[in-house]
Amino acid sequence: MIGYIVQRLFAILVILVVMSMLIFGVTQILPGNVAYVIAGQFATPDVVHAIELKLGLNDPIYVQYWRWASGILRGDLGQSLVMERPVGPIIADALGASAILASCSFVFVATIGITLGVIAAVRQNKAVDHGISIFTYVGISVPEFFWGIVLVIVFARYLDWLPPGGRGDASDSLLTRISYLVLPTATLTFTLIAHVSRMTRSSMIETLRTQYVRNARAKGLPERVVIWRHALRNALLPTITVLAVDIGWLIGGIVVVETVFSYPGLGRLMIYALERHDLPLIQGSILIITAIYCSANLLADLLYAFVNPKIRYGNAVR
């Protein structure tokens, strides 16, 4: 197990290094010279040249990459061109906001998804099952930004129950601040729930047919205990993998949902940076988001290997 963990950690490390090269390389061909962005559109060539010299923009690309990468290792992501502040703290703030939104959504996706899946499995081919299947089908077929807008129209504009976007201030009461989270969380949850509930349903159906579930029933255990304690625990294994895949979807969805709800998280920050060609901010935010994505995947793999000792590195063709 320890060998497996070390192997995976090393693989992730290599991937991160290659990824940082990719991100750096791609952002280097971005339209709009950084020096022009800093100097503004009325700058004279002299000014632009001076900025280029100061930032070392004429150095060979590997020198620039090394400067950037070694900066990251020291915790320095550079200076945002548009906001004129260090990138690190800007990203840290946004990351905090995103983390709250992501963890709320993840908790709801997991709990509601698994519950729906179990109910659908127990009531297989009954009306409830079909209802859940249609509900999740619609959720997965609709882009999150459209759900976001529908929810805003209904709950913010029409009913006026919840704020349409933003995050609230530190001075707001806890309840007010939670109210800002409701719509984005609901949007993300609804678009992600289908995978989890479907996977739980099918693995539950299989588990419910097994001998030990029949045994548990024959022992006279209450149906509630049989389903939630005995069957579900064994049916959860495939669900864990799906939940891990969902983390990826969650990170993708969060970019869009934050834009819809003007929620000041990492995703919106990245779009903002892309729109304004703020190179260091683009590089920093993409790098951090992908790094989180990788670690989430690693965590899921480890968890999976931990729960299921049959899975070991190297023999699974993915």
Binding site: A11, I15, V18, M19, L22, I23, V26, T27, I29, L30, P31, G248, I251, G252, V255, V256, M270, L274, I282, I286, I289, T290, Y293, C294, N297
Partner: peptide, 21 residues
């Protein structure tokens, strides 16, 4: 493919698009 799949899909799309208008 390991490296490319380590990007969240939308991020990879944005990265490709970031390089051009």
């Amino acid at each position: 493919t390991d490296v490319l799949m380590s990007f969240p899909p939308i991020m990879l799309g944005l990265l490709v698009l970031a390089a051009t208008t």
